[in-house]
Amino acid sequence: MTIDFTKDWRNVALLAVLLAAAFFLPSWLRFLLQTALAGGLVALGVMIQMRAGLVSFGQGLYYCIGGYAVGLLAAKAGVAEATLVIAAAVISSVVIALILGPLLSRYREIFFAMLTLAVSMILYGLLVKAATLGSTDGFNVPPVTFFGFLPAQEARGDWTYVLTALLVVVACFLIARYLASGAGALLEAVAENELRLEYLGSSARQAVYIVYVIAAAVSGLGGALAAIATGHVDPEMANWTTSGGFVFVALLAGRGSAIAPVLGFFLLELVRTYALDIAPNAWQLILGAVMLAVILLLPDGLWSLVRRAPK
């Protein structure tokens, strides 16, 4: 199934409008949106790899690297400048991805899934053993400053929301441009027929390497924004259950737009919080039923509803 991403920037513009309007939501709901946006970026990283037929079961690795980069700088090194810590989070994710990429880009299907999972679990294991970093308890991240300015406690939520919304829109826009580009179009060819792609003179490994690094960058950004939003990081970010959640959101939301995983993550969180409220003992059951229904009724994810509508 070929999807034209050249017009996806319109969806991103729509996302920008929605996020601007969401500024006025009640603060608990806006906070839920803010954390969902951060997580949604990681799901977006999973989604673009899925376009190449690759399922990353270890995207939590970069989520965790991004979060810990912010945490270590702000809490342990005393650098709490938002621009610096976020840049550091993205750069450290990219550097790790550049190192791991040559190995991982050789593998496909279940082997790729298991290898990504394994690498992520190595980080999880290391962090759990690191007593100085609080082991499983993790540690708290102090509030970030904006060009040296530290907003008052009451206004911090507003500032970090605006920061998150801006960066998420920019990231979605860049991903949409990437998917619309030649390099992005190659992903589908990798999934469809790798041999033919090679005969046409393109390198499948290179296409996979590129998407892997780009996915790492957005996931690292997601981790950084999550750490800033919740003010706490722990090794659970790298655990396979967290990564599995991102895969699920990517499947649930669909692969039709760069904004689908971001919105999908928010919808899922909304279902989760109300399920928790209605059935504190059986909320997973409600969540599972919703997921099952989406998979059975909308095999191409929630986004297929949006794509179907204009026709």
């Binding site: 009640p26 603060s27 608990w28 709901l29 906070f31 839920l32 954390t35 939003a229 919740t230 003010g231 706490h232 969180e269 989760r272 919080t273 928790l276 409220d277 504190p280 003992n281 909320w283």
Partner: peptide, 21 residues
């Protein structure tokens, strides 16, 4: 009382308790 599962995302659910409930 309003019971909520601690296993879910704690900061989000804490805010929901205080601000929504």
């Amino acid at each position: 009382p309003t019971f909520v599962d601690e296993a879910a995302d704690a900061p989000t659910e804490y805010r929901a308790l205080v601000e929504r409930e």
